[in-house]
């Protein structure tokens, strides 16, 4: 188990020591957003904007035009939804090199209610021109994403997880920007996921393997640009494709995968394991995941049921 926010905080300081362009920008999100260490070490490169997200996004766009590299951290919906137009106009259309970090993606703020969950953000951010969309799940992925975001051309959105998670697989990882990470290879179904759901996907994969069902599991830490090649390659010959995400079906990875499969005429059924639109149940994170059928155990049941159905339909 490792804390993704702590990993973000330490990595930003490390990168800040090397790259003097980096400025950290907080909307009263310094402590919760993992900026405290940077603010402490580099006060002259730390900007507190207060609770004013629209101002913060536009301000960062102008900072970037002067050669600074702002890393702006805001609680997710207040960034991706309240300031959406600023993100689209001032970062996207202007191709401003700003890293925007939406704290607590998905159901991370599981007890706080519908105002604080972010289950529409991926769809919104996928629509912004020039914006790279990254969604790490554990500490290693967070560090990887931050490094890649600094090096990338143009603006980058990072959907930050909040809960400490285990890595979805043991051993060394093969993460590459713009490429899906193959966590497991199987023959019956393909399960595509990202973020903290990757750990749940691998739990589902292990549960199903006990009953003889094998899954390919792919981790799309880069959601945009989507690794369409991997989407198609691993769907080939499978009885069904599944997506698992803390996002509504509209606009999320499920949507993105559907676009790729349909346009290629892949002809494989797609089942979106997603948060239903308008969901507002609250509770402990793991229990809420299970409630929406997104925990490893619940996902395994839904996948098994779908594969059995498609098997009987095939007969």
């Amino acid at each position: 188990m490792n804390d993704p926010r702590k990993a973000f905080e330490m990595k930003l300081v490390e990168l800040g020591r090397e790259d003097k362009r980096i400025v950290a920008v907080s909307c009263d999100s310094c402590a919760g957003g993992g900026l405290s260490a940077f603010f402490q070490e580099f006060p002259e490169r730390s900007i507190e904007v207060g609770i004013s997200e629209q101002n913060a996004v536009s301000l960062c766009a102008a900072l970037s035009r002067q050669g600074l590299l702002p890393v702006l951290v805001i609680i997710n919906p207040f960034l991706t939804m309240r300031a959406y137009e600023q993100v689209r106009d001032d970062l996207g259309y202007m191709n401003s090199k700003v890293i925007i970090v939406g704290s607590g993606g998905g159901l991370a703020y599981s007890t706080l209610g519908s105002t604080h969950i972010a289950v529409e953000d991926v769809g919104l951010m996928r629509s912004v021109p020039h914006l790279t969309v990254l969604a790490p799940g554990d500490a290693d992925e967070v560090e990887f994403c931050l490094e890649q975001a600094i090096a990338a051309d143009g603006p980058v959105y990072i959907r930050m997880p909040r809960q400490a998670r285990s890595a979805p697989v043991d051993g060394p990882r093969s993460m590459k920007l713009g490429k899906a990470e193959v966590l497991s290879e199987g023959t019956d179904g393909a399960l595509y996921t990202y973020g903290p759901s990757a750990e749940e996907a691998m739990k589902a994969c292990r549960i199903l393997s006990e009953s003889g069902t094998s899954l390919s599991v792919l981790n799309f830490t880069t959601i945009k640009p989507l690794d369409a090649e991997a989407v198609l390659a691993h769907a080939k010959g499978k009885r069904a494709v599944f997506t698992l995400e803390e996002h509504i079906p509209t606009g999320g990875l499920g949507s993105a995968v559907a676009e790729v499969l349909a346009q290629a005429g892949a002809g494989v059924p797609l089942h979106m394991l997603a948060v239903p639109e308008g969901a507002k149940n609250t509770g402990p994170y793991d229990e809420l995941l299970a409630f929406y059928g997104l925990s490893g155990e619940e996902a395994a049941k839904r996948i098994a049921a779908a594969l059995n159905t498609s098997a009987s339909e095939t007969k």
Binding site: V23, E44, R45, I47, Q54, N55, A56, V57, S58, L59, C60, A61, A62, L63, R65, Q66, G67, L68, Q86, D90
Partner: peptide, 13 residues
């Protein structure tokens, strides 16, 4: 807001 960014950048740089 954009003006604030440019003005702040001038102060920082």
């Amino acid at each position: 807001p954009l003006g604030c960014g440019y003005a702040l950048a001038a102060k920082l740089q």
